[in-house]
Design a protein around this nucleic acid. Sequence first.
DNA 1: GGCTTGTTGTTCAAATCTGAACTAACGCTA
DNA 2: TAGCGTTAGTTCAGATTTGAACAACAAGCC
Lengths: 151, 151
Amino acid sequence: MTHSDALDPRELRAWIAFLAASHLLENRIEQQLKHDGGLTHPEFEVLVKLAMSDGRRLRMSDLAREVMVSKSRLTYQVTQLERDGLVRRTACDSDRRAVWAELTDRGREALEKVRPGHRRVVRENLIDLLTPEELEVLGEAFTRVAQRLSG
Amino acid sequence: MTHSDALDPRELRAWIAFLAASHLLENRIEQQLKHDGGLTHPEFEVLVKLAMSDGRRLRMSDLAREVMVSKSRLTYQVTQLERDGLVRRTACDSDRRAVWAELTDRGREALEKVRPGHRRVVRENLIDLLTPEELEVLGEAFTRVAQRLSG
DNA sequence: GGCTTGTTGTTCAAATCTGAACTAACGCTA
DNA sequence: TAGCGTTAGTTCAGATTTGAACAACAAGCC
């Protein structure tokens, strides 16, 4: 190894700040989504991914990968969303094991309803606190981190 | 407002990357802690905060604030840690409502056992992927974010 | 003292999450 | 087409989390 394990003060500061900011941001986001639309963050992420997808639908396993959630957790979340009429399950013709999760019109409406507030939270508590340079650095660095943890 | 709500491509990229990296890093950390010492991440954070504190103990409400967790959640976590002998609850003389959560020797051992692996995970998947400059930016930026969300 | 307001920590039921089965179907190979 | 290893999604039991309600105490005020 090229470094000793222990983190020096700079590294520690960055790590602590990252942890704290993540926690706080997550809490704030949960609060807004619940308040504005009765959604949890994972539910919101499911709706977003579906809205972005071709035909507003994804197969369960692809959706699980997209939102980085276990299969069983996704099953539960989609069941909840289906109960509320925001998502619909559909059979997949080409693979009879597979299931489409499809965004309904009500799901789209629910998403649009919370989105402005969500964007505002992200903007006011992260984006607008960063200079363009910092934003660039952050985007690059975390892309690298995500890549490493995916490979 | 100074900006329209929608995120431009740079902003979106940074946000998406941050979300993905957070998720993946969190999963990785959970995995290591569970594997090396049967701890969850919140449990680990509780132990760390206690270990850092004067007399290796904190009152429940202070501990909850430190780890940014709800009171009831902390009650549960500390109960689990106490069952495993890693933490001990003690009465507080100066305030009979209050409860000290105190790290036991076994708790310290458990912490030291998982810490090297934990540090390695943080290092290999975050710290060592960043240049010193990036690290500095990250520390500053997230300190700002945390400050804003705390105030 | 007696009153009021705020704090501390726990409890409880309901909601959510985890991970290990499990069923069904796929795709390949012989 | 029968067999075999893999994949998709669900189910289930147990663990954890949430949030509101509660009991006990503190702190100040009259």
